[in-house]
Simulated assay, not measured.
Amino acid sequence: MSPRDRLLALFVAVLWGCNFLAVHYTLGHFPPLFAGALRFLVIAVPTILFVPRPKVKLRWLLGFGLGFGTGQFALLFIAMNIGMPTGLASLVLQASAPFTVVLGSVFLRERLSPRQLTGIVLAVAGMLVIAWHQAEHAVLLPVVLTLLAALSWGIGNVFARQARPDNGLHFTLWMSVVPPIPMFVLSLIFEGPGAQWHSLATLDTTNGWIGLGGFTYVVVLGTLVGSGIWTTLMRRNPAGIVAPFSLLVPVVGMSASFVLLHEVPQLVEILAGLVIVGGVLLGSLPRRQRSTAAVSEGLAASSS
């Protein structure tokens, strides 16, 4: 991996880590489900017009869109909206990696190595510690929703692996066509048209501009720029070399939240987070030579 590619990988980790901060500011103005629908809609429209549709079966595209897109971001945005700390969200969402390994073993009959099993056990142990600690402070529900978001991401990865697209970026962009309608419907049911209209009608306020700035970052930098660079790096370098850079995302996310939002994680959460990251590393990188479609496609689309 060239020095330039290493710097690009670090740049993407910074973009994705700060993406959670951008989501925080977005949700300060937009209802969470409506924000998710808009996020995918502004990507879906130009995708349909200008990006060739990937030659994959429709069921795999729909499954990836509903799992990675609709499920993950609906649950994550709701969790952050009801109290999930921004930095902690960037950490707990890393559970998608061990979830992907387990789901691949169950549904795709992929064998688990002892190293993968060890990594899964470590990651689960870390998540249980965080859940227990948050439950003591009566904020367990946001953690559970974030874990379900990670599980949904893992489900999406299984569909992506089955799709085996020739162009991962095109596949990721076309995934964005799936979530807008179900997320709009969910928003109408649970948030109501009044909340949707109010968020659009008050964009000219200070809070509106801040929310719009966060939304723009999520769409442009977190999704298009970050995913585009990551996909290019995955194409030029072995996945086993590129993928570990994603473990820097929660480091950036928690650091940015500490500096800008004054979120101070407890020592037990930091230690549990280190255990989770170590488990993810063990579970996601079992061998030096491997073919990792799920890792490349899942991480290429990461944005939170």
Score class of each variant (00 low, 15 high):
Leu8Met: 09
Leu10Ile: 13
Val12Thr: 09
Leu15Asp: 09
Phe20His: 10
Val23Asn: 06
Ala44Ile: 00
Ile48Met: 13
Val51Asn: 01
Lys57Thr: 08
Arg59Glu: 14
Arg59Val: 14
Leu66Asn: 08
Gly71Phe: 10
Gly71Val: 08
Met84Asp: 04
Ala89Arg: 03
Gln94Ala: 08
Pro98Arg: 07
Ser105Pro: 07
Arg109Glu: 12
Arg111Asp: 02
Leu112Pro: 10
Arg115Trp: 11
Leu122Val: 13
Ala125Leu: 13
Val129Asn: 05
Ile130Lys: 01
Ala131Lys: 03
His133Ala: 14
Ala135Asp: 04
Ala135His: 01
His137Val: 10
His137Glu: 12
His137Leu: 13
Ala138His: 01
Val139Asn: 08
Ile155Phe: 11
Gly156Asn: 06
Gly156Arg: 01
Gln162Ala: 11
Arg164Asn: 14
Arg164Phe: 00
Asn167Met: 03
Phe171Gln: 10
Trp174Glu: 05
Val177Ala: 04
Phe190Arg: 14
Glu191Asn: 02
Glu191Gly: 10
Gly192Tyr: 00
Gly194Glu: 15
Gly194Asp: 15
Gln196Val: 06
Leu200Thr: 05
Thr205His: 06
Thr206Trp: 14
Asn207Gln: 15
Asn207Met: 14
Trp230Ser: 15
Thr231Val: 15
Pro238Lys: 08
Ile241Pro: 08
Pro244Cys: 06
Pro244Asn: 07
Val249Cys: 00
Gly253Ala: 01
Gly253Ser: 00
His262Asp: 15
His262Gln: 15
Val264Lys: 09
Val268Ala: 07
Val268Pro: 07
Ile270Asn: 01
Val277Ser: 01
Ser296Asp: 12
Gly298Val: 07
Ser302Arg: 12
Ser303Trp: 07
